[in-house]
Every structure is written in C-alpha cells, then in structure tokens.
C-alpha cells in the first residue's frame, strides 16, 4: 500500500469501531449494549456448540461401526453379517419412484401457473393448495397415504404406496423451485419464439423448459433430501422389513414390496431393537447424504443465481 505523500500533522490509523466502541456511553446504555452483545454471542455460541456436538457425536459413535461390509450386505444370522444394503436399495427405489411421479406433475403445474393460467382466481387457488400441502406434517400424510393407497387402492404396506404419498408431499417443493426459475427466463425469449410463429407448446419445450432446468434440478435435489430424511410415511405406509426386495421380478412385486429405508432402519435399530451401534452407523450415512444433498443444492442454486 502506498503511504501518504505529505507529512501529516498527526498520523493516525482508523480506530476501528471494535476498539472504541461504546466509549463514554452512559451506564444504562453501556449495560444495554454490552448485555445484548453478550447475549447474541452467547446464543450463537450455543448454536455452534450444538452443531459441533451433534455432528461430532454422531460421527464418534457411528464411524467405528461403519464398514464396507455394513453397506454392502444384508442382515443374516446364517452368514453372521449385519448390513444395510436392503435399506439403501429401498431408499433408492423410493427416491426414484417418487421423483418419476412428482417431477412431471410438479413441473407441469409450474408451467401451467407461469405460462398458461390467465384466471387470477385459479392461480390463487392452486398456489393456496400448494402452500397448504407444504404445511401438512408428515404424520398426516402417513394417515392419508395409508387410507388412500394402502387401503383404497389395495397396495398394502408397500414402498409404492409410500412413494405415491411422498409424491404428494414433495409436489409443492418442485412446483415452487420450478416456478422460481421459470420466472427468470426473460420474457423476450418467449416473445421471440412466439413471434417466429412457433406454437406455445413448442416454445415451452424449446425455450422455457431448457432455460429453467437449474430450478427443476434444485427442486429434485431438495425433494431427494426430504425423501431421504422422511420417516413417518415410510414407517406407516412403506413397512419396516430389513430384507432384500426384488422389485423388478414381477409387476406384483413392484407394487407390493414393503421394506425399510435408511431412516426406518435407523428407527427400528434404535427404538425397537435397542441396537445403538448400527443405528449410529446409519446416522453417519444419513448425515453424509444430507451434506452432499445440501452441497449439490447450493452448487445448482449458485448457477441459477448467476443467470
């Protein structure tokens, strides 16, 4: 840094506000200022301690029990193995099926809201419904999913019924993120395409949807996070078996296989069987997944903002 070229009468550095903060304040103001500042730091410290403790404790208890074998085998008394491969497989199945159902519906709804709907009241109704869906707790989804899919549709305790329920639950997320990114597609693009004589659907397919792919991906990632973390729906609609499913053996298997996902497996280990070591190992897996999902959402979100 260059120095001042003229000899100053008194050279002084900026006294940063930390150093002379609150000098000469009255006693009452000093107490208010220092007290609240202390409280803010205290609460932030508490939050951080909590964070470090939670994450640290889960890793401390879980890591020693985590092994390649744990991730790649199923529980078997005969072979003496203790693994969560079925839970991983079930989780992937649920994530896949849920997204296959929810994604077209959610993106379609968002496209309808931003590109087609002209009736203000209809838009308000749909948006109100979306907000309502996102406020309903998962235990109620579990109830309705049980009634509607397990009973009425006769799917019983099955991962398909759970996936259908989760599709209802994740619809708002996908609608919202897609809608947000559709709004970032410049109006001029649409006018340009329509002005060239292309139909509305053609315009949406070639201009609007490709331009909002980031938002759609963000919606997917957030949904994956919610599905992976969900437990009530999966426990009461999806069942809690810890054995391998062969979903694709037959259509009947596809529709009626039940089983535990990672969260349900954790619950079963911890609460039903009091097996804390494998439970913490599953927790580590879930924590790492959550971290990766957040990271992915952030990366995609950043790309979206740069546009």
């Amino acid at each position: 840094m260059e120095e001042a070229n003229i000899m100053p009468q008194t050279a002084l550095e900026v006294c940063r506000n930390e150093k002379c903060r609150g000098k000469g304040l009255s006693m009452g103001r000093k107490i208010y200022d220092r007290g609240l500042r202390g409280l803010v730091w205290l609460c932030a410290g508490l939050t951080c301690t909590l964070l470090v403790f939670l994450i640290g404790y889960i890793f401390y208890r879980g890591l020693p029990n985590l092994s390649l074998e744990f991730l790649t085998t199923q529980e078997s008394l005969l072979k003496g193995t203790m693994g969560i491969l079925p839970a991983i497989q079930n989780t992937l199945y649920v994530v896949g099926v849920t997204l296959v159902i929810a994604l077209p519906l959610g993106v379609g709804a968002a496209v309808y809201l931003t590109e087609y709907a002209s009736n203000r009241r209809l838009v308000t109704t749909i948006e109100f419904a979306t907000e309502t869906l996102s406020g309903i707790p998962s235990i109620l989804y579990a109830l309705v999913g049980y009634l509607a899919f397990s009973k009425t549709l006769g799917l019983g305790y099955s991962l398909l019924a759970a996936s259908l329920t989760l599709a209802m639950m994740n619809l708002p997320t996908i609608i919202r993120t897609t809608q947000e990114s559709l709004k970032t597609v410049p109006q001029g693009y649409r006018e340009g395409a329509l002005g060239l004589g292309s139909g509305k659907w053609h315009m949406i397919r070639t201009i609007v949807l490709p331009g909002s792919i980031d938002g759609i991906v963000t919606g997917c990632i957030l949904s994956v996070g919610r599905i992976v973390g969900e437990s009530a729906v999966l426990l009461y609609v999806g069942g809690m078996d810890g054995t391998m499913n062969n979903f694709f053996a037959s259509l009947d298997k596809f529709a009626h296989s039940s089983g535990a996902t990672l969260t349900v497996q954790l619950y079963v280990f911890a609460k039903e069987r009091a097996m804390m070591d494998p439970a913490f190992a599953v927790a580590v897996v879930l924590l790492v997944l959550t971290f990766l999902i957040n990271l992915a959402a952030k990366v995609v979100g950043k790309r979206l903002r740069q546009r």
Binding site: E3, Q9, G24
Partner: peptide, 24 residues
C-alpha cells in the same frame, strides 16, 4: 479496509483519536 491518515479535528478534538467516543 478503510485507512485514514492525517488530521481531522472538530473544535480542536481529533475525530479519529483512539479516545474519541463515536456515538457522542
């Protein structure tokens, strides 16, 4: 990252003196 050198006084008092009470 602001840095100030030289002198700036208000009624003879250095505004950037360490003992200056900013709120006052």
């Amino acid at each position: 990252n602001v840095k100030i050198t030289g002198s700036l006084t208000y009624r003879g008092q250095e505004i950037y003196a360490p003992e200056q009470d900013v709120t006052d």
